[in-house]
Design a protein around this nucleic acid. Sequence first.
DNA 1: TAAAAACCTAGTAAAATACTAGGTTTTAGT
DNA 2: ACTAAAACCTAGTATTTTACTAGGTTTTTA
Lengths: 133, 133
Amino acid sequence: MLKFTTKAEYSLRAMAILAKNYKKTAVSLAKIAREEKISKVYLEQLFSKLKKNHLVTANKGVNGGYILLRSPENVSAADIIEATEGSLEPFYCVSPKGNCCAKKGCLTRKMWIKVHQGIKITLENTKLSDLIK
Amino acid sequence: MLKFTTKAEYSLRAMAILAKNYKKTAVSLAKIAREEKISKVYLEQLFSKLKKNHLVTANKGVNGGYILLRSPENVSAADIIEATEGSLEPFYCVSPKGNCCAKKGCLTRKMWIKVHQGIKITLENTKLSDLIK
DNA sequence: TAAAAACCTAGTAAAATACTAGGTTTTAGT
DNA sequence: ACTAAAACCTAGTATTTTACTAGGTTTTTA
Ligand code: FES
Ligand code: FES
């Protein structure tokens, strides 16, 4: 029903914690899981995606944890949500390739694209630094 | 994953057909189901909501069917999608009452509200008449 | 060398979505 | 009056997605 899932919520909250510790310490998922009351293994799955998208890096071992790769001013909510939710496209048809029914004068395609742009712009303009201040 | 469902797609396509027949004839769901290859009973469920939201009216019996209550210029995609999908709110917290974690200085609430406004404005500015021309 | 961290995969429970089955009620045309 | 075609209604179900668990391994530092 056009809802962001917990993936967006959890990853934003977790990334906000990393932002608060930027240039200080790495933060372990065990700590985040405890503080935010989120399943640690579920967080691992989200952070695997955040890492693949070059938003964070990780240190293994004792006192290890995750670290932001960019400063909180340079990480947007769009970056995070796209990484964990998969995409911001509000309908299956809104892809750069323009597959689906586009050829046959689709009624709604233009509208989905506008909605997509709106969501994207709002989330791109919200940075991690905005969330934590 | 922040997607509109088939409810939005089907109801927009069906309402576009009613718009094309505005001031002409009532259109039966059997016809729409045939033309658009959508389950008739599923359409019935969607139209029950559209009717409750005063977007259409119905004639029973032979030659009956559904009719737009307002002109295509005065029915927006937001009207239709809100009726069938339930709401346009992109996160559970974005309600007029502002329940959930709002009190404790929530990080993301402001952002969800902006996203919601953006979606709403785009869909309100798209009328049925825009879709069929 | 032990504890604590990341990292990995497959399975599963719960919820939402997209239907179907099987009716009844109403109405217009014959 | 009868019949076909329409709306209208409810409960059930199949499919898909989401959210999470189980049960590990690998790596690193104290
Ligand atoms: S739904 Fe994809 S182009 Fe129309
Ligand atoms: S998620 Fe609802 S106010 Fe923060």
